[in-house]
């Protein structure tokens, strides 16, 4: 749940940047004959609306409409008083507080005489919002616009690059707060959480694999419990809608730490390239060091999700090189699992 700093800073995300993103999207809409683009947001799927508006919608749901011409409208189920606050942190667009976002956007489409609108991830749109949209805009032909959105979204601008870099910096600082002698996951997590939030992180989820000799499963603070001699920490951190993940494995013994450092160095040096066999290259570099790659994945923003797997050992490759990405691996060593993940900047 959002509970860290939520603010819009025009120096970090200028209005011109948001307008340029919207202009690119509108160009693609025009090419496909769409007169409006609609995206739903909730706590799990805020990324598309963040990218379009500069605001990170938080726990309540909402529907954002970018018309081909005119002011975008963000209809949110939050109260009028909270909407006033949103207006201060949303770079571009009007806020419409309403218990029925789909009704408001449907009526807007009808008023504008729009005949064709694209919805991001139509099947995942809550039925209540979808039916309200369709009932209040009976003359509109709705289509799924995920394929239209994706190539536009993966064009990265300087503002996004800077936010992701800052998020990566904060995550690395948090990782440096790790006390390798900590007895429990709670002792490990708390200082990292404190540093992230004092530094202005919007959100941080920390998970711990408490005993890498037995399992690579990452658990939360309520279930991870005591730490064994080898453990891993995964930090998922957002700074103003820029999400990164960073995973590190730790060993309490000097020999284990040396082995882990060597694997970390190899992993940090690896740079995937478009057109390469990432799977083959990763397998080779770990095999050369006496370890076995068990699985890997690349994550990127996808649709409404801030990070979703777009390539990996069990997923066909739809990775877009150059866009913000996170690469993660699970490697088998003589002492058990070794986990790592890092942003590709």
């Amino acid at each position: 749940m959002r509970r860290g700093l939520m603010a819009w800073d025009a120096n970090e995300v200028p209005v011109a940047t948001i307008e340029a993103r919207q202009a690119r999207l509108r160009e693609a809409m025009r090419a496909q004959g769409l007169e409006a683009f609609i995206a739903y947001t909730n706590i799990a799927r805020p990324a598309a609306v963040s990218w379009m508006s500069g605001f990170t919608p938080y726990w309540s749901e909402g529907v954002y409409c970018l018309p081909l011409e005119g002011t975008p409208v963000f209809a949110t189920a939050l109260s009028k008083r909270v909407a006033e606050w949103i207006s201060t942190v949303m770079a571009v667009g009007e806020v419409a507080p309403t218990p029925q976002p789909g009704v408001v956007i449907g009526k807007l489409l009808a008023e504008k005489g729009i005949s064709k609108a694209g919805i991001l991830e139509l099947d995942e749109l809550p039925a209540k919002q979808a039916t309200a949209l369709m009932q209040n805009a009976p003359g509109v032909n709705f289509t799924d616009a995920a394929d239209l959105f994706h190539p536009i979204r993966t064009q990265v601008d300087d503002a996004e690059r800077a936010l992701v870099r800052h998020a990566a910096k904060l995550a690395a600082e948090c990782m440096n707060k790790v006390d390798v002698e900590a007895a429990s996951a709670q002792d490990l997590i708390a200082p990292c959480e404190l540093h992230a939030r004092l530094s202005g992180a919007e959100e941080i989820f920390i998970a711990v694999a408490p005993d890498l000799s037995k399992s690579a499963t990452l658990k939360r603070t309520d279930t991870a419990g005591e730490l064994a001699d080898t453990f891993a920490l995964r930090i998922s951190l957002a700074y103003k809608a820029g999400w990164v993940r960073l995973t590190r494995s730790f060993a309490r013994t000097a020999m284990g730490a040396t082995d882990f450092d060597r694997l970390q160095q190899m992993f940090d040096d690896f740079q995937p390239q478009a057109g390469q066999s990432i799977d083959g290259m990763l397998r080779q570099i770990f095999a050369d060091n006496g370890a076995t790659l068990k699985s890997w994945q690349l994550e990127q923003p996808r649709g409404g999700y801030p990070l979703a797997i777009v390539a990996g050992s069990e997923v066909s490759n739809t990775w877009t090189a150059g866009a913000p990405s996170v690469m993660g691996v699970d490697v088998e060593t003589a002492s058990g699992h070794w986990l790592a993940a890092r942003p590709l900047l």
Partner: peptide, 24 residues
């Protein structure tokens, strides 16, 4: 102090107590 710094202190406390989620 800044408002988010207060929240940082409390979230740190909750994580140290094994509280996975907090709304505030």
């Amino acid at each position: 102090r800044k408002d988010y710094e207060l929240i940082a202190e409390i979230e740190c406390f909750f994580r140290s107590k094994g509280v996975a989620e907090n709304f505030m």
